[in-house]
Write a protein that binds this DNA or RNA. Structure first.
Lengths: 155, 155
DNA sequence: TATTGTTATACTCTATAACTATA
DNA sequence: TATAGTTATAGAGTATAACAATA
């Protein structure tokens, strides 16, 4: 009710959520570009890494399941999986009862690739998280990642 | 030193930052896809929106300045700016003293486009922030956006 | 009919390389 | 020489449309 409520960032009570969304959009773009640049030496792209990472966490899955999980079209997931298969990181096996479906699973090489990625402690983001945030700020970022992950995963 | 230190997520004290980075990468991909899908009706792409938004916040700038700010190559920024100019949302004027440079600024139409965007209160992310987080969680997310923005903007 | 997956095609974003104009 | 910007080309990621095989 105070006159300065027109400000874009309201200090307390009711932050302007459209403004927050806009900042999130900008952040998302920046993060994508920096993370992509940072993981260039990996030999795999970000989309491919996301699929490998999901296969590690949740086990084998079909194209359509993976597409839904990553929120892309089955055709797009098909392209990503074809690249991963060509690189020998995933393998496809027939579904036991439904011959339309293909089950994608990690190969041993794919599993090693994930382990490698986890050992990369010196990417810019890891350094930045370690060196430019204090403990409280790190905790804030970590919790926010969980919260936003929850929002994007649900319907 | 305890035996369970092999776990990927260490509960307290020293979170596995490579794990955090990996989650951030996954989140970034999800956010990008959902935000892009949500802003499809806008008539402008995410990159274009980022440039307009920066011109609003910081005023006119050259191609190279915008490229540095958004962390893309000048050629990529050139393409984005060409699309924005074609759409009538930005205009270019000669630099007063250096004839190599072009100053990009918002047109009235570009300014209106930004205002429109701010009025879109019903995008999925705004709804989700409003309806699926409590006040404390929202504050965490908002602070984390600031923190991560600081990390990506600096060198 | 509905679902799974593929092929064909196109657009956006970004990159590298090579160039012109100007400083 | 160095910087600002452009043009040409390529690759990744995604989409829609049309299709085949299977349920």
């Amino acid at each position: 009710m105070r006159p300065q409520d027109q400000q874009t960032t309201v200090s307390a009570g009711q932050p302007d959520l459209a403004e927050v969304a806009s900042k999130l959009r900008a952040l998302s773009g920046q993060l994508t570009r920096r993370l992509r640049a940072a993981s260039e030496g990996d030999g795999i792209t970000m989309s491919q890494a996301a699929v490998l990472s999901r296969l590690v966490r949740k086990g084998p899955a079909t194209t359509v399941e993976l597409a839904r999980a990553e929120r892309v079209r089955p055709q797009s997931m098909g392209a990503t999986l074809a690249a991963l298969e060509e690189a020998g990181l995933v393998q496809r096996s027939p579904h036991p009862s439904d011959r339309r479906q293909m089950i994608m699973s990690l190969t041993e090489q794919g599993r090693r690739k994930i382990e490698e990625g986890r050992r990369i402690k010196e990417s810019w983001i890891v350094q930045a998280l370690r060196d430019r945030l204090d403990d409280r700020e790190r905790a804030v970022v970590i919790e926010a990642i969980e919260l936003l992950g929850r929002l994007t995963e649900e319907d």
